[in-house]
Design a binder for these strands. Structure first.
Length: 170
DNA sequence: GCCAGAACTCTGG
DNA sequence: CCAGAGTTCTGGC
């Protein structure tokens, strides 16, 4: 199976994303394309990788607008591979409105689970291959503080600040 | 099935 | 702030 990928420059650094024929299946944030490509290859061992900027322009356009603070990212076609539980968590994450955050505990409860599942929710978030598109950065600790983010907590904080700023009317 | 680990949370000092 | 206990899901053996 072959994946196409593209990348764009953003205030966060380089953003690189890969897609299968069904939709976007991977997105990473880093300093250089080469570093991101290395991570992508580690996550997806086999695939033929082919750069396709024009074919994925719809995604970079949406992401570029989002990262510029123009508003919520348009809904892009996603091709997520994960356990049923993970997919459930990712769906719950995507239900969080732009500019808002939800605690891991609240997400666990919305899934009909006990507060202990918050840890599992965090684990599913960490396994999310498409940050930004599945807004795992909107999941925070019970006291509102940030807990962790695959691409560094600093970037998570930046994302949240961006969403707040563009949501605030003043 | 058992054991260890995780982007959690609550309680007690 | 630090330590301990509780809960749910994942991954290796």
């Amino acid at each position: 199976m072959e994946l196409t990928y593209t990348s764009l420059e953003s205030p966060l650094g380089r953003v690189l994303l890969a897609a299968s024929c069904r939709g976007i299946c991977w997105l990473g944030i880093g300093d250089t394309d080469a570093a991101l490509l290395a991570v992508l290859r580690a996550d997806w061992p086999s695939p033929g990788l082919r750069r396709d900027d024009s074919g994925l322009a719809y995604a970079t356009d949406a992401l570029g607008a989002y990262l510029a603070g123009c508003g919520p990212c348009a809904t892009l076609p996603l091709d997520l591979a994960g356990t049923p539980f993970q997919r459930r968590v990712w769906a719950a994450l995507r239900a969080i409105p732009y500019g808002e955050t939800r605690t891991y505990r609240a997400i666990a409860e919305s899934l009909g689970l006990g507060p202990g599942a918050a840890r599992a929710v965090g684990g599913a978030g960490a396994a999310n291959p498409v940050s930004l598109l599945v807004p795992c950065h909107r999941a925070v600790g019970s006291d509102g503080t940030l807990r962790g983010f695959r691409w560094s907590v600093a970037r998570k904080a930046w994302l949240l600040a961006l969403e707040r700023r563009s949501t605030a009317t003043g």
